[in-house]
Simulated assay, not measured.
Amino acid sequence: MTSSPAPLDLTADPAELTAALVDIESVSGDEAAIADAVQAALWAQAPHLEVIRDGDAVLARTNLGRDSRAVLAGHLDTVPVNENLPLRRTGSADSADGEVLHGLGTVDMKGGVAVFLHLAATLPRPRHDVTFVFYDCEEVEAARNGLGRIERTLPEWLRGELAIVGEPSNAAIEAGCQGTMRVELRCTGTRAHTARGWMGVNAIHALGEPLARLASYQARVVDIDGLTYREGLQAVGIGGGVAGNVVPDEAVLSVNHRFAPDRSAADAEAHLREVFDGYELSVVDSSPGALPGLGAPAAAELVAAAGGKAAAKLGWTDVSRFAALGMPAVNLGPGDPTLAHTRQEHVRADEIRAVAETLRTFLR
């Protein structure tokens, strides 16, 4: 890793391009070096594209006058380094598992970014117009997300008939996404000395009833466009207590709800207020889901290019932002999403190439 990385070769094997991108450290908020490298490579190797810079995001697009446009979006940033840089390799093309790339960002999501950059340089005349969005600060709070900034300042760059977000999906199409909501349930009591506990009311003990409701909760399983979305409701934190000899007079239970995209955020909140009827509830974080929209022509073409298979995305991704703009959106990228944000991040080289081939078939 250096402050001035070697020039990127966008026409190279996308697995090799992934390796080059991984070795440009780009923790959220420090994406300037990788954005510089991406911008320089697009200017030099993709003269057919209109290329602009927005902060540490780089945007590029064809302007061929096609009847439809696909938006391919991938974030340049990673979570903090965790003893997993520089890149290392195991295996080979002749081994059972093939060549495997290990390191920060291999899964989340420089493999997907490499595929998009490779296609940007090697498909000058795709059958759909294409916009490529390489953005910053996805791995931190939503207010800093580069895609959100672009939506506010350059909204015309996000318009199209289909959005493809390169988040890891095991090289398969994962359509739409779940919504997510976090609420806090607050119980109050009366302080007392623990030696005279009967004189107080223990707020932590009062959480027993809402916790029992959570333990017996039966989550919905929903079929949308032939895809199965599983909802969830989980306690994710408990806060309370004053001192080791004081009956606590306040306790807070934090609950996360993952809801299927047929519910709006308002529907999800109403459902939680029904589940926890009788308790004070406040919403502290909320992001809507995204319907799969696989019936849209461009989405159906992509599914066909991927062999006719798609699955539901069990999690939240930036496809939600595109769905809010009225576009069908899917996740398609190399790598196992369960490895994201772990020290063990790794991706198979042949999976990177498989995603590139699927998208090449769709766009060519």
Rank of each mutant, 00 (worst) to 15 (best):
L72N: 01
L49G: 08
E50T: 14
T131Q: 12
K110V: 07
P80W: 12
L119V: 06
A142I: 15
R89T: 15
D56C: 10
L64W: 06
G105E: 05
L59V: 08
L59G: 04
G105R: 03
E50V: 07
T122M: 10
G74I: 02
L64Q: 11
F116G: 04
V107R: 02
L87D: 03
C137L: 13
I34Q: 09
P86R: 08
A120Q: 06
H118E: 05
A121S: 08
A114F: 07
A96C: 01
R53W: 00
E141V: 15
V130I: 13
G65P: 06
P80D: 11
H128C: 05
L87Q: 08
F134I: 09
C137H: 13
A57Y: 00
D56H: 15
E139Q: 13
L59W: 07
D97R: 10
N145F: 11
T122S: 13
A33T: 15
R88F: 12
V79A: 14
R127K: 15
F134R: 02
A142F: 14
G91Y: 06
A37G: 11
L85T: 14
F134T: 07
G103L: 06
P124C: 09
L119R: 02
N82C: 11
F132Q: 01
A93L: 14
G55Y: 01
D129S: 07
R149A: 14
S95Y: 02
P47V: 07
D97K: 05
V133E: 05
E138S: 09
H48N: 11
P124G: 11
A70M: 13
V115G: 00
N63P: 00
R149G: 10
L104I: 04
N145E: 00
H118R: 04
D94V: 14
L123K: 02
S95I: 12
N145K: 08
I52R: 13
L76P: 04
G91N: 08
K110W: 07
N84K: 11
N84C: 03
V71Y: 06
Q45R: 10
A60K: 03
R125W: 01
G98C: 10
E141D: 15
F134L: 03
L42R: 01
D97Q: 14
V140A: 10
A120G: 05
S92T: 15
A121E: 09
V133K: 03
C137F: 10
I34N: 02
T78E: 00
G65L: 05
D54P: 00
Q39D: 12
H75G: 03
A121I: 03
H128G: 00
L104K: 14
H48E: 09
V79H: 01
E141H: 13
A40M: 07
H75Y: 12
V51I: 13
L76G: 02
D67S: 15
D94P: 00
T106E: 04
Q39A: 15
G146V: 08
A44F: 00
L59H: 03
G111R: 02
D36M: 11
G91M: 10
V140R: 10
G74N: 12
F132R: 02
R69F: 03
G55Q: 12
